[in-house]
Computed example of a mutant assay.
Amino acid sequence: MRTRTCTGAPARTTALALLVAGSLLAAAGCAKEDDAPPPEPGKPRSVSPVAGCGKGSWTDPADLAPDRKPARCSAGAPAPKPLAEKRDITIATGTLSAEYVAPLQMAVEKGEFKKEGLNVALKVLPTPDALPLLAKGDIDAQWAAPDAAVMNGITSGFDIKWTAGNFSPDPRSKSGLWVRLKDDETADHVPMAGRTLGTMIGKGSVIAYPMGKALKKHGGGLDEITFQQLGSADVLTALQNGGTDAAWLLDPVWRKVDGDKRFAFLGGQPQAEPLGGLLFGPKLLKKDPDAGVALLRAYIRTVNTYFAGDYKADKAFAAELAELLGTDEEVLLATPSLRMDWEIRAGTTDRLQDAYRAAGVSKGDKVPEKKAVDRELYEEAVGRK
């Protein structure tokens, strides 16, 4: 039987400095007290088999094959295991309208968190604002990504770990790096060195990793292009009118240039490799891991029940989802379903940090994966020994 050892989190006050998008973010605080009884220090956490979660509920983290099937349990699994005492949980997220947030929204809507004894509130907060609150325990989890700010924060002393993935794109998706072709260029090889790239996402975003891969294929690199920070409504316009040479276009914006021979798609997020998801702070990692497992169990059950495959093929569900996200159903259906995936691939945080270095937003030693990633809580949720 695999066991996981949990230790109590002592209260402490730590001065922390964090570089966020070129500015210094300082935060200091103590671990927040709550009413949940802390686990006994050193008490092992036993892991038992979970009905409906067999071999397919786990995949080898080292498997980076682009056609890897995401882990799945049966619909309705893992079944709820209500906590003896109810907990109030706050999850910060940068938006409530993006499709990748849908599993959290649906878990609230369908009462999946409540089945675990969790009263979950989703709070919209930008990552720079949420990160120090997560480290202090003022919020419990964050739906975000291990971007440069997070990794720099861990280096500075933030007790934060990436505990579950979110999604990878469908192979048909062309969300990613698009370039305006010059008269003598083809999509097969586009010299990118020296060009400008318009994006609403800065160099410190996880998108730096796939962006760097795409640029290298075309004779460029993150240190060989000029970034133009643009608003979400301006990125496409700048690309179309020549205000920028290239742009990172998200769903469903890329459809505006798809099929236009003046533009070429150079690459997007790697297949079958989530680049974000749930980040836990000290409370769910150490002080109250029971609540952390319960939260992940509800999230995983929501994926297995509602997002296991091509969820947009169900017209009734697509209509419900569009209403929940506050978006037009036609817009939602214009792009393929995301491949929801709660697992975290081996080496992803290393590859991300390589990209941050190349972009010039991270320095010093790499944060080891074991210090940035915790897979054991979601493994416990699905009963993997």
Results as ranks from 00 to 15, higher is better:
89 I>D: 02
90 T>Q: 06
90 T>K: 12
92 A>T: 14
93 T>H: 07
93 T>N: 07
93 T>S: 13
94 G>T: 08
95 T>E: 08
96 L>E: 07
96 L>M: 03
96 L>Y: 02
96 L>W: 02
97 S>N: 13
97 S>C: 09
98 A>Q: 08
98 A>G: 03
98 A>D: 00
99 E>I: 08
101 V>P: 03
101 V>H: 04
102 A>N: 13
102 A>Y: 12
102 A>R: 13
103 P>W: 11
103 P>H: 08
103 P>N: 06
103 P>M: 10
104 L>P: 04
105 Q>H: 05
105 Q>E: 05
106 M>N: 00
107 A>L: 14
107 A>P: 13
107 A>S: 13
107 A>F: 14
108 V>G: 05
108 V>K: 15
109 E>P: 02
110 K>R: 13
111 G>R: 10
111 G>I: 11
111 G>Y: 10
111 G>F: 10
112 E>F: 09
113 F>P: 14
113 F>R: 12
115 K>V: 03
116 E>R: 04
116 E>P: 04
117 G>K: 13
117 G>L: 07
119 N>D: 15
119 N>W: 03
119 N>A: 15
120 V>D: 09
121 A>M: 01
121 A>G: 03
121 A>I: 00
122 L>F: 12
122 L>D: 12
123 K>P: 01
123 K>E: 04
125 L>N: 06
125 L>I: 11
127 T>Y: 04
127 T>C: 06
128 P>A: 02
128 P>K: 01
129 D>K: 02
129 D>P: 00
129 D>W: 01
129 D>Y: 01
129 D>R: 11
131 L>S: 06
131 L>Q: 10
132 P>K: 00
132 P>H: 01
134 L>A: 05
135 A>M: 01
137 G>Q: 14
137 G>Y: 14
137 G>W: 14
138 D>P: 05
142 Q>M: 15
144 A>F: 03
146 P>R: 14
147 D>K: 09
149 A>D: 11
150 V>G: 05
150 V>M: 06
152 N>F: 02
153 G>K: 00
153 G>T: 00
154 I>M: 07
154 I>E: 10
154 I>V: 14
154 I>L: 03
156 S>T: 13
157 G>Q: 02
157 G>C: 05
158 F>T: 05
159 D>I: 01
160 I>P: 09
160 I>L: 08
160 I>F: 07
161 K>Q: 15
161 K>N: 09
161 K>L: 09
163 T>V: 15
163 T>L: 12
163 T>Y: 09
165 G>D: 12
166 N>T: 15
167 F>P: 10
167 F>G: 11
168 S>G: 15
168 S>Q: 11
170 D>F: 08
171 P>I: 02
171 P>Y: 03
173 S>A: 06
173 S>W: 02
174 K>Q: 15
174 K>Y: 10
174 K>A: 10
174 K>D: 08
175 S>E: 12
175 S>K: 07
175 S>Y: 06
175 S>L: 06
176 G>C: 10
176 G>I: 01
177 L>A: 04
178 W>F: 03
178 W>Q: 07
179 V>R: 11
180 R>D: 01
180 R>W: 04
182 K>H: 06
184 D>H: 02
184 D>I: 00
185 E>Q: 15
187 A>R: 11
187 A>Q: 07
187 A>P: 01
188 D>E: 15
188 D>F: 08
189 H>C: 05
